[in-house]
Amino acid sequence: MHSIYARINNISALLSTSLMCLLGAIAVSSYFFTADPKGLLDVSSIQVFPGNARRYVNKNQDFAFVNFNVSADLTPLFNWNTKQLFLYLSAEYTNPQGIRNDVVIWDKIVRRKEDANIDIAGRNKYVFREPSSSFKNIPPAHYTLKYNVMPYVGVLTYGEAARTKEPVAFPESRDLS
C-alpha cells in the first residue's frame, strides 16, 4: 500500500483533480464579469459598383463598398480569463423575398487590454455582395458591431457593442467604365 507506484498514482490523481477544479473555477468565474460596453457606429458612405462574379466570368454582380466610423471602449471586457476579443462588423437586412441576411464586412482581433479602446475609420475588408447579385430594390441595412469574448478556458460569449441608429440605404449601382 505504500509502494512508490501507489504514491505516484495518488499524487498524480490529486494533481489532476485539483487542476480540473481550478480550471472549472476559472471558467465559472467568467460568469461574474458581466460588462456590457456600448460604443458608437456610423456609416460615412456606401457605394455600389458592378463587377464580375468570382466563379462565373459572364455573370455580373454588384459589390458594395462601405466606409464606417466606429468608436467603443471595450476594456471592461478584459478580465483575467480573456484571451482575446474578436470584433466584427456586420450588415443586417431582409431582402424583398424575405431572406434575412447577415454579412460580416470587417473584423479585428484585439489581444491586449491596452488596444481595446478602439476608434477606427475603416472600410470593408470582405466582399459585400447580395446573393441575388444586385442591390437594386434592397431595403436599407442596419450595421452592427459585435464581439466574441474568447476565454483562456471556458465558455465563449457574444455581445453587441454598437448599432447604427437608422438603417442605411444602398445607393444606385454606378458603372465606372
Binding site: 474578436f86 423575398q97 424575405g98 431572406i99 434575412r100 441576411n101 447577415d102 454579412v103 460580416v104 470582405y126 446573393p131 441575388s132
Partner: peptide, 20 residues
C-alpha cells in the same frame, strides 16, 4: 471556422441561384 455570412430562410434553387 467562423461564420462570415448567414442567409436565413434561403436555399439553393435551380442553376445555383438562391431562392427563398
Amino acid at each position: 471556422h467562423r461564420v462570415l455570412e448567414t442567409h436565413d430562410g434561403a436555399k439553393i434553387g435551380r442553376r445555383a441561384s438562391i431562392v427563398a
